[in-house]
Write a protein that binds this DNA or RNA. Sequence first.
DNA 1: CCGCTCATGTAACAGGTTACATGATTTA
DNA 2: TAAATCATGTAACCTGTTACATGAGCGG
Lengths: 189, 189
Amino acid sequence: MALRHAVLAALLDGEFSGYQLAKAFDVGVANFWYARPQQLYAELTRLERDGLVAGREVPQDGRPNKRLFHVTEAGLAELEAFTAASAKPAFVRDDLLVKVQAADRVDVDDLVAQLSERARIAQAKIDLFENLLHRLRGERTETEFLRHGDRVGPYLTCLRGVAFERENRDWCTRTIAVLEERRQVHARH
Amino acid sequence: MALRHAVLAALLDGEFSGYQLAKAFDVGVANFWYARPQQLYAELTRLERDGLVAGREVPQDGRPNKRLFHVTEAGLAELEAFTAASAKPAFVRDDLLVKVQAADRVDVDDLVAQLSERARIAQAKIDLFENLLHRLRGERTETEFLRHGDRVGPYLTCLRGVAFERENRDWCTRTIAVLEERRQVHARH
DNA sequence: CCGCTCATGTAACAGGTTACATGATTTA
DNA sequence: TAAATCATGTAACCTGTTACATGAGCGG
């Protein structure tokens, strides 16, 4: 059960409503996890029931009220415990890899189309993450910020996100190149 | 439902038993997916029921009989259809990232311990994948193999696997360095 | 007036994990 | 003689996804 810890970690940066969290966890702006709104509302309910987060109703005019959540002492303790427990290694589990695995037996055009779409999405994420990194470190250089900034967690996870998406993009373009070239080689015989 | 396609893709390289597939999907040697033995046996049963794979009983002496499976025509068609359909982007979903996100609020020793363990695992996978790459391309150079080899799918997915684990390892070591340095900076005040 | 954003959910289902079971043979 | 490998599963459970619901205000 790690979504709950992901939510706790996200709430370390301040108070957020379910809706705000949903937006962050949706596109992957919260680059360290991903979840649907429904899941978040459900999880927040459970977290509150267990006393790991507390919410306060904030009335708004012209809009529905919202509930802003923050982590409690018990929540922090839970995060500590979670961090101490060992994590099993993560692996890539990607439809696109399955398709490429079958590359020699399926339609190359389909594959190339999907690979370039994926490269495009990866690039979009890179831009997004790099913006976020810039916002986080402000005027400081990266080294400076990582040494003296008072909250580097989100920055570090974001670095992982950028690296992942760069790899993703580069692998896609390279794979496209390989498939295209093989098609030409094939055509000559 | 993508495990079924992952299994089909894995069976493109020949006949395998449930046990053999389980070994491949277990550690992540099948770098493009991951699954437990139970899941594989269940999936193979379904795949056979749906006519996408066919198995033949192979008697062995001194060992239990095994069933070797191969992809049928219908199975290939299914893979084609799957490839044509669009895939949703994959994302990183990793306990360790959640922990690092909370870095400023949890025990640094725990974190560093887990990061170095992870770096170690990543290195082991890199070695494993690089061996596999070498086996696949034989005496040829990579460029040569990718241009003229007759089955490049597994090679391409393996390249993705190596790149991922390299990123993983490097990010871990860098994160450790950052955390260690901050600890020193902190200690001086 | 249509669609978007804010705001929060329920219900059914698909997929994956954990725990457990069985039984023979080879290796340390 | 204990542990690992070969070989195949069942059952209960947890997590995540899909589809659907509600309702107010705001912008074009």
